[in-house]
Design a protein around this nucleic acid. Structure first.
Lengths: 144, 144
DNA sequence: AATAAAGTTGATTGACTCACTCGGAATTGC
DNA sequence: GCAATTCCGAGTGAGTCAATCAACTTTATT
């Protein structure tokens, strides 16, 4: 049940970008230093977030990265799915990346105990992460 | 955020053992067949559960495994911790295996955004899995 | 136009983990 | 004593994680 370094770094990078949203563009170098992330690894991560449509970038001198969407429209769940894949503990209870379980003795039955349990877990995780925006993350949580 | 095969198999094995609790002892072979688990891998898992105090075993002909604790005293959370380690997505929010984060720019600060978010997730997961007993698992869930 | 600074891309690496597999020793029932 | 079973440690092949590197393209400044 572990969060990868990739996602951790990704979230921390977005934390910085959220703080400068609408003000400045940040360069990998700056983000890496502020958050203690290896630059070249960070690069990969920023690129992935760019391809997913969260960031824009400019090359060359004075280049850098900016948030392209408002930080209250981006959730931690989205980010983690981009970098780590589905939130669900097992594929057969994923809503965004469902896969039928092969070789499971309950695959053909109507009802699987493991699916019940892990389905609950998946929903609990998604309920939190899909409502936790970058704004909540950077500036303190709504905590409804 | 994935559950390992080890834990999945472990839970499915315990599902069988719960169904025969107080009646028969089951052999690896039987459990493996019923749940489609590779026998030798299953062995490792059963051993780990034995060392953790959940199972008893007998060798030789007519040997096998039995639950040593009542299935309403064993939770899915316990089982997963034995086989997969802590439930928390990152070590610095684990209650059963806390580790201070190294190299995190917030390590010395009073407050870390990532800890807040992942702490919530950890609690949500633990709330479910630490109250989900093998009885619930095998015979249908309480669902309060 | 030249240069330097920055992002882009793909390949590669080393360590580690996951999911098994194997061989043999110890125990038990007959 | 023999066969069936668990116990235990070591090993393995594939894959993943976390980087790292080299080469390339784009941009601003001079």
């Amino acid at each position: 049940m572990k969060l990868s370094k990739k996602s951790e770094y990704g979230l921390r990078a977005l934390l910085e970008l959220t703080q400068f949203y609408g003000k400045e563009t940040l360069q990998r170098q700056q983000i890496a230093e502020r958050q203690h992330i290896p630059v070249e690894f960070l690069e990969q991560i920023l690129l992935a977030l760019k391809r997913a449509g969260l960031l824009a970038s400019r090359r060359g001198i004075k280049g850098g990265y900016t948030l392209i969407k408002s930080p209250d429209e981006i959730t931690l769940g989205q980010v983690i799915r981009i970098l780590d894949g589905p939130l669900a503990p097992i594929a057969c209870v994923s809503k965004t990346a469902y896969q039928k379980c092969r070789d499971c003795p309950y695959a053909s039955k109507l009802h699987c105990p493991l699916q019940d349990a892990m389905g609950e877990v998946r929903n609990a995780i998604a309920d939190i992460l899909d409502h936790y925006t970058l704004n909540d993350f950077a500036f303190g949580h709504r905590k409804g």
